[in-house]
Structures are given as structure tokens and as C-alpha cells.
Amino acid sequence: MENDLDKVVEEIMSMPNVNGCLIADPQGLCLASKGAAHVDSAGIIVAISEQACKIQPNMKPPTVCLETDKKQCLIQRHGTITGAIFKLKT
């Protein structure tokens, strides 16, 4: 059932510098996760994307980028599904 989703996650993980990937549903429950992404962070990732959407409610959901010295986390909502990609900075 989730083979297609797993394929997408594998594809994302094969990209350079990506060390984690997480997909969550609108309830903040994890649908798929791999690498550095922790299942428990699904709720917080969806909450961050929800808050970001409130900045400009009429526009399409923004991509949120959380950055630290060594890592980057990109959060994007597409319809009801929210995805997060964890990357190592080059």
C-alpha cells in the first residue's frame, strides 16, 4: 500500500547531502520517515507548516527552511500532506 510513498522517500534520500526525510498527514501523524528524521517530530513539522501558512493565507503554502550551522530542514506542504527534508550543509 505504501510502496509508492517508500519509493519517493528512497528517491529523496538518494539526493546529495540529504540525511533524512519525513512525510506526515494533516493530523500530524507520520506516514513515512527515513534517516535522521524522527517519527515523533511529525506533529511539530505539521504545526510549523500550519503556522507558516497563516502568514499569507491566500497564497500557496510556503516552504519553511530551518537552518543551523551544519544542518538544514526544509518543510513544504502539498495539499494535505506535509514533507520535511533534512540536509547537511556543504
Partner: peptide
């Protein structure tokens, strides 16, 4: 009913 269940679960810690 539409509250973020995952966020509630993360409050445990």
C-alpha cells in the same frame, strides 16, 4: 477533531 494529533503526542516528553 481536526487538532494536530502528532503535536499532542509530542507533548508527552
Amino acid at each position: 477533531d481536526n487538532c494536530n494529533t502528532g503535536h499532542i503526542l509530542s507533548l508527552e516528553s
